[in-house]
Design a protein around this nucleic acid. Structure first.
Lengths: 305, 305
DNA sequence: CAATGGTGATAGAGATTAACTATACAACGC
DNA sequence: GCGTTGTATAGTTAATCTCTATCACCATTG
């Protein structure tokens, strides 16, 4: 029993004439005749009464035809589903973002994506890089926004933008008179750091090797976010390093904080998109990339493909 | 897209492993692999993400699999319908009976059929032979009970029983003293006849050729039934001829009527079943025949096959 | 870093199935 | 009877399905 057989069956039930039904199915009369006979044998049921005058459907035949129509209808739905799902910009996209990007990127990203792909709702999750990578590989996420380096088997990454680091200090801090801060001097200040797991923490420590070795005055704040650290800096608890997208928008309306760049060469992080090599909706990822690049993130420089 | 393809699809969605899914479908891995690929091409949609680690279903793939399961379920229903409908004694049987048999046969027939085939309800229609034949050929009826001769192209008949004719007269009628009535004497009495269209009318007239030529005292009662004629006879309106199944049960409790047989050779009618040659539920017809033969119809003689 | 094992894709051969054309067969109507 | 109409059957061709064997890929492991 194939879907073709069922189509023949339904056609014959409608036409009540082998020849006409065959014509409607674009096959020869013997083809349809044989198919119906085969179907009757397979089901061990007489579906039609053939006579010279005409073709009559049996009671059981009518019931089976009705069911066959239901099957064909449902089968047709598959094609419709496929057609609807063919657009990579249709259907939800599961996006992961690291904690140190999400709060600054998402407010810009969401409206832009919604405009570019109205029928692609975003399901967003913030987490550590390692957790995001796990979810991505498992298929719980479709694309993640992370900082490089990021290497995983089966995962491709595409750099999107570079983002310089800034020093954030309380207003009135001694360094406020400097135009730019040397990375080496970070070890001299009480540096507030994110907890382990945040890649940004590691990147900051890389900027200041002495801090990593524990020789500085840095303090690790487990369970904190850049925002909570910023508030702590505002109260004079220490200084910190922020990515420009988090730091630059601040001072305008915030009298308690001062932001300074690093002296060249400025340390920076490279933010990238990552997805499974096998992920088929590349169009959706393009939309995300474009939306990120058109977002007004302070201080960032696009990375050409 | 075939039902087999859909089975492969569903299996793969369940197993998430081409080899295992193929095994479950009793095919080789390449077979399933190729089938899935073909399906994806036909639908122009990626259903699965293949990677070395595992097989992930895409969102659209999951939706299509759900639909495929629905299709397979409905298709399975066809087989169940066929299994259920394979029994010729299941499902309603559309029976037609001529007016001059129905009232005497059906009360006996129905309980017997119900006992022999409890899941075969009877849909019964009484009508003239010609009308029944038309309905039978059209497929509105499955089997009819008529009197022979009955010849129709595409219709087979099977004689069931012979039924002698009787003369019915009012109690106290002059012929009451006779043991048997000669057919030729019918022309001498006011004979009440059914309207045209009733085959029994013609058969009675055949018994009495003089009546046919209009030389007797007979009166045709259009729109009547044997029962109404019987009541008329009881009031003394005339005499009539009845089949034994209608006549013989009467006199016992009916002081107003007398019944007499004809002199040998008794005229009789041969009652038969008729159905389309193509009708597949011959088992159902056998049941009807048996039920008729086991019915206690007065005076009838079974006709051997 | 090379070897290994597991997994899906591909190639080519063989068998099955489905389709066609031609024709037989059956039933009715003239 | 004989032609017409309509379905079934035969035989052939073509498409398709399925198989075995093998490749290619990747991730793990010694």
């Amino acid at each position: 029993m194939t879907l073709t057989d069922l189509r023949y069956l339904v056609a014959l039930a409608r036409e009540r004439h082998f020849g006409h039904a065959a014509e409607r199915c674009n096959v020869s009369q013997p083809t349809l005749s044989v198919a119906i006979k085969k179907l009757e044998e397979e089901l061990a049921v007489t579906l039609f009464e053939r006579s010279a005058a005409d073709v009559k459907i049996t009671d059981i035949g009518a019931r089976i035809v009705a069911q066959a129509e239901k099957v064909l209808l449902e089968a047709g739905q598959i094609k419709e589903l496929a057609t609807a799902g063919r657009d990579p910009l249709s259907g939800p996209l599961k996006v992961g973002v690291i904690y140190t990007i999400g709060p600054y990127l998402l407010p810009h990203l969401i409206p832009r994506v919604h405009e570019a792909a109205p029928s692609m709702p975003l399901l967003i999750q913030e987490n550590y890089t390692a957790r995001l990578a796990e979810s991505l590989k498992r298929g719980d996420l479709d694309v993640i926004v992370v900082a490089l380096p990021f290497e995983e088997p089966g995962i491709v990454t595409q750099a999107v933008y570079d983002e310089p680091f800034r020093v954030l200090m309380p207003a009135g801090h001694a360094w406020e008179k400097e135009d730019a801060i040397a990375a080496s001097s970070l070890a001299e200040a009480p540096l507030l750091l994110l907890g382990a797991g945040n890649c940004f923490r590691d990147q900051v420590l890389e900027v200041c090797p002495m801090c990593r070795s524990g020789e500085g005055l840095q303090r690790t704040l487990e369970g904190s976010s850049l925002e909570t650290i910023r508030h702590m800096v505002a109260t004079g608890a220490g200084i910190t390093v922020l990515p420009s997208s988090a730091a630059d928008p601040l001072p305008n309306g915030n009298a308690l904080l001062s932001v300074r760049p690093f002296v060249a060469p400025e340390p920076f992080r490279r933010v990238a998109l990552a997805w499974r090599v096998t992920y088929p909706r590349s169009g959706a990822i393009d939309v995300i990339r474009s939306a990120i690049l058109s977002s007004p993130l302070a201080g960032v420089r696009a990375v050409s493909r």
